[in-house]
Simulated assay, not measured.
Amino acid sequence: MENNNTDLMRMIQTKFSRLSKGQKLIAEYILKHYDKAAFMTAAKLGASVGVSESTVVRFANQLGYEGYPELQKALQELIKNKLTTAQRIELSNDFIIPNNALKGVLKSDIENIRATMEKINYEAFESTVNSILNSKKIYIVGLRSSAALADFLGFYLNLILDNVKIVSYGMSDIFEQMLTLGEGDCVIGIGFPRYAMRTVETLNYAKSRGADVVAITDSVLSPLATKADYVLIAESNMASFVDSLVAPLSVINALIIAVGLKEKDKISKTFTELEQVWQEYQIYSYKTNKDINKF
């Protein structure tokens, strides 16, 4: 079903009078507690209002969805950019058992990887690789929690190419760092809920200057996606105060490797020279445990 998620709550209100008694209980709960309902299974939502799991499924069908997972996804799209950090902490207490946080987080990350494999546009991925290779200059912008992803992508692309710039907060404004941006350049914007407004503004600026725009984000409904020529979707869902960046990092790893494979001879030479520098200036430890135990 193609629903505008911003109209979901209004649709529930409109159809309320036609719902069964049990379905009305579900509707009332969602209208009041949609932030929690978005991360509940059908069974848990049913138990919370005193109805069966099958009643929850029929409620989703009544709204026009093929099943409950589709309704749940619509709820998540509706609220994930609106949750405050305090609300995320409250949700994490409900959906991640404190004594088993490791298992809960790992399972969530596995699901994010699986969903990313299903949703990512492989043509957009190849187009992004070609844009990176053919651009005069590549700008990478990712702010707040996405800064780690931007730094990682920039670090490795800088080892492969010589025209990469990581744009970040500093002495000069972001737009000042992109003053010469224009046609033939590429801007890669990275952002996940809650989306940093400065990243969105940067992509809008890049679009106005005629540059190729790539968005690495969580949904085609993301404000970054609406500004982009190529959108790479990576799931980041987690009912917690910490963003799940596992799937986005995996997509970024794939980008780096894909670019590297097309510049294989160049990076082979680069890493040979780097290895000499690393050894000469003792950047890494080359001693084994056996060597250390001698002292």
Results as ranks from 00 to 15, higher is better:
G67Q: 04
G67K: 08
G67C: 08
G67R: 05
G67S: 13
Y68A: 03
P69Y: 00
E70H: 08
E70N: 08
E70R: 04
L71K: 00
L71I: 03
L71V: 00
Q72V: 02
K73V: 05
K73M: 11
A74G: 05
L75W: 04
Q76R: 09
Q76G: 09
Q76I: 11
Q76K: 08
L78C: 04
L78G: 06
I79S: 02
K80N: 13
K80E: 14
K80D: 13
N81H: 04
N81Q: 06
N81D: 15
K82W: 05
T84C: 00
T84S: 12
T84N: 03
T84P: 07
T84Y: 02
A86H: 13
A86V: 12
Q87A: 05
Q87I: 02
R88T: 02
I89F: 08
E90Q: 09
E90K: 09
E90N: 02
L91N: 04
S92T: 04
S92K: 07
N93T: 09
N93Q: 13
N93E: 13
D94T: 08
D94C: 11
F95V: 05
F95M: 00
F95Y: 06
I96W: 05
I96V: 10
I97W: 11
I97N: 15
P98W: 02
P98N: 08
P98D: 09
P98S: 12
P98C: 06
N99A: 10
N99K: 11
N100Y: 09
N100K: 15
A101N: 08
A101I: 11
A101R: 15
L102S: 10
L102H: 15
L102M: 09
L102W: 11
K103Q: 12
K103L: 09
K103E: 13
G104I: 01
G104K: 00
G104W: 00
V105N: 02
V105P: 02
L106N: 06
L106K: 06
K107C: 08
K107T: 12
K107P: 02
K107G: 07
S108E: 09
S108G: 11
I110H: 14
E111F: 08
E111L: 12
N112E: 03
N112C: 14
N112F: 02
I113V: 14
I113S: 03
I113E: 08
I113Y: 05
I113P: 03
R114F: 10
R114S: 14
A115C: 12
A115W: 11
A115M: 15
T116H: 00
M117P: 00
M117I: 14
E118M: 11
K119Q: 15
K119A: 15
K119L: 15
K119T: 15
